[in-house]
Simulated scan of single mutants.
Amino acid sequence: MSSGSKMVENLSDNDYRKTLPRFQAQNLEQNQKIFEKVNAIASRKGCTPSQLALAWVHHQGDDVAPIPGTTKIENFNQNVGALSVKLTPEEITELESLASAGAVKGDRYDGSLVTWKESETPPLSSWKVE
């Protein structure tokens, strides 16, 4: 698996990820270190980094569920495999420290994408159930 600058170099010229702040040179070195640590945890757990991420979401509580998207059956099978990855409280704490707001460098999006933060969703208190 490619990581860091090698991964960015291997992306096609029109790949959207090349525009994202987290993949820019000034942020890439720090984020690559995090990526390598996540890979090491995944290796210890005998799973892929993607499975580890999905497993972390699964461990957030019974009211939280990841909704991964894929168009390939192999990726679907990988996603389902995340259900068998069990994390200890220490591993959850370690993963959360790696993903903390101060650890990851660069915004997730470049500002041209509208996310939930910019949405005009009415407050829950205004919703009516009929």
Results as ranks from 00 to 15, higher is better:
38 V>I: 07
40 A>S: 14
41 I>V: 04
42 A>Q: 09
43 S>G: 13
45 K>Y: 08
46 G>W: 10
47 C>Q: 13
47 C>W: 13
47 C>P: 12
50 S>M: 09
51 Q>V: 13
53 A>L: 03
54 L>K: 08
58 H>S: 12
59 H>M: 10
60 Q>G: 05
60 Q>H: 03
60 Q>D: 06
61 G>I: 04
62 D>I: 11
62 D>N: 14
63 D>L: 11
64 V>I: 12
65 A>Y: 09
65 A>F: 14
66 P>C: 05
66 P>E: 02
67 I>Y: 09
67 I>Q: 02
70 T>R: 03
71 T>R: 08
71 T>D: 10
71 T>Y: 09
72 K>S: 10
73 I>Y: 10
73 I>L: 08
73 I>Q: 11
74 E>D: 13
75 N>P: 08
76 F>C: 03
76 F>R: 03
76 F>W: 11
78 Q>W: 04
79 N>D: 08
82 A>L: 04
82 A>S: 13
83 L>S: 14
85 V>P: 00
85 V>H: 02
86 K>M: 12
86 K>T: 15
86 K>W: 11
86 K>D: 15
87 L>H: 03
88 T>Q: 06
89 P>M: 06
90 E>S: 05
93 T>N: 09
93 T>G: 04
95 L>R: 01
95 L>G: 03
95 L>I: 09
96 E>K: 10
97 S>L: 03
98 L>Q: 01
98 L>W: 00
99 A>E: 00
99 A>V: 02
103 A>F: 01
105 K>H: 08
105 K>F: 07
105 K>A: 08
108 R>V: 07
108 R>A: 09
111 G>L: 10
112 S>F: 06
113 L>Q: 12
114 V>G: 10
114 V>M: 11
114 V>W: 11
116 W>M: 13
118 E>L: 05
118 E>K: 15
119 S>F: 04
119 S>Y: 07
119 S>G: 07
120 E>Y: 15
120 E>D: 10
120 E>S: 14
120 E>G: 13
120 E>H: 15
121 T>S: 13
123 P>W: 10
123 P>T: 09
